Simulated assay, not measured.
Amino acid sequence: MTLVLLILGLLGATFAASVLVALPDAVQLLYTQQNLGTYVPAASVEPVLTIGMVLQGLTWLATAGVSVWLLVRGRRAFYVPVIGAAVSLVALFVVMSIALSSDPTLLDFYSRP
């Protein structure tokens, strides 16, 4: 069960990293749909997204390392990938929130009644 969860976690981490890569294009699409003009990401967006991608990879590596270590010692480890998935999801939402909150046009658009 632990190995299946680790494989699913690897797929999830890869998907999360690809979501972060596509975030500027998705925001541009939102700008186009709502007639907000052209999206120009703030200078902090690219480093934040890069940190988020690295964080996804490190979270999965740490999860895999601890899981394998526990399995080698003969202990149950199914809960480690579950905890890793929760940490990865929280990190993904935090990074996306930081990246999106740096755009004053989006903040103004969504703060209108």
Rank of each mutant, 00 (worst) to 15 (best):
Leu70Ile: 05
Met1Phe: 07
Gly57Asn: 07
Ala85Gln: 05
Arg75Trp: 01
Ser67His: 03
Ala62Arg: 01
Leu5Tyr: 01
Ala17Leu: 03
Asn35Lys: 14
Thr38Ala: 06
Gln56Ile: 02
Leu89Ile: 10
Leu6Pro: 00
Ala99Asn: 02
Leu29Gly: 15
Asn35Ala: 15
Gln33Ala: 15
Leu70Tyr: 11
Ala16Asp: 00
Asp103Ser: 02
Thr38Asn: 04
Ser97Pro: 09
Leu20Gln: 06
Leu36Pro: 02
Val21Tyr: 12
Val48Tyr: 00
Leu55His: 03
Glu46Arg: 15
Thr2Phe: 03
Pro24Gly: 12
Ser88Met: 05
Val95Met: 02
Val87Asn: 04
Thr2Gly: 10
Val21Asp: 12
Gly74Ala: 04
Ser67Met: 05
Val72Thr: 12
Val68Trp: 04
Ala43Asn: 15
Leu6Met: 14
Ala99Ile: 01
Gly37Pro: 06
Trp60His: 00
Arg76Ile: 00
Leu23Glu: 11
Val80Thr: 13
Arg73Gly: 04
Ser101Cys: 02
Gly9Leu: 09
Gln28Ala: 13
Arg73Ala: 13
Ala43Gly: 15
Tyr31Arg: 15
Ala22Val: 12
Ser101Ala: 13
Asp25Leu: 13
Pro113Glu: 10
Met1Arg: 11
Val90Met: 09
Leu106Gln: 07
Ala86Lys: 06
Leu20Tyr: 01
Ser88Pro: 03
Gln56Lys: 01
Ile51Ser: 01
Ala91Ile: 01
Tyr31Gly: 12
Gly37Glu: 11
Phe78Gly: 05
Leu20Val: 02
Phe109Asp: 06
Gly52His: 00
Gly84Thr: 03
Arg75Leu: 01
Leu100His: 10
Leu23Tyr: 06
Thr38Trp: 05
Asp103Val: 04
Val82Glu: 02
Ala91Val: 07
Glu46Ile: 09
Val54Met: 04
Ala91Tyr: 03
Thr2Tyr: 03
Ser44Asp: 10
Asp108Thr: 14
Pro104Asn: 10
Val72Ala: 14
Pro47Trp: 06
Arg112Met: 07
Leu36Ala: 09
Phe109Arg: 11
Ala77Gln: 03
Leu36His: 08
Pro41Val: 09
Phe109Lys: 10
Gln56Glu: 06
Asp108Ile: 08
Thr50His: 05
Leu55Lys: 00
Ser18Asp: 11
Ala42Ser: 13
Ile51Lys: 00
Trp69Cys: 13
Asn35Val: 11
Met53His: 07
Pro24Met: 09
Pro81Ile: 04
Trp60Met: 03
Gln28Phe: 09
Thr32Pro: 04
Leu61Val: 07
Leu49Ile: 13
Met96Pro: 00
Ser67Gln: 07
Gly84Pro: 00
Trp69Glu: 13
Ala62Trp: 08
Met1Pro: 07
Leu20Asp: 00
Ser97Gly: 14
Leu107Cys: 11
Ala26Ser: 15
Pro41Thr: 13
Val48Thr: 14
Ala43Pro: 12
Val90Asp: 08
Val72His: 12
Arg73Tyr: 05
Ser111His: 15
Thr32Gln: 11
Ala13His: 04
Leu5Cys: 02
Trp60Ile: 04
Tyr31Thr: 14
Asp103Ala: 02
Leu23Met: 14
Leu70Pro: 01
Leu70Cys: 12
Ser102Asp: 08
Val68Ala: 14
Gly12Ile: 00
Ala99Asp: 01
Tyr31Met: 15
Val95Ser: 06
Thr63Phe: 01
Leu89Asn: 06
Ser97Tyr: 10
Ile7Val: 15
Ser111Arg: 15
Thr105Val: 15
Val54Leu: 11
Gly65Leu: 07
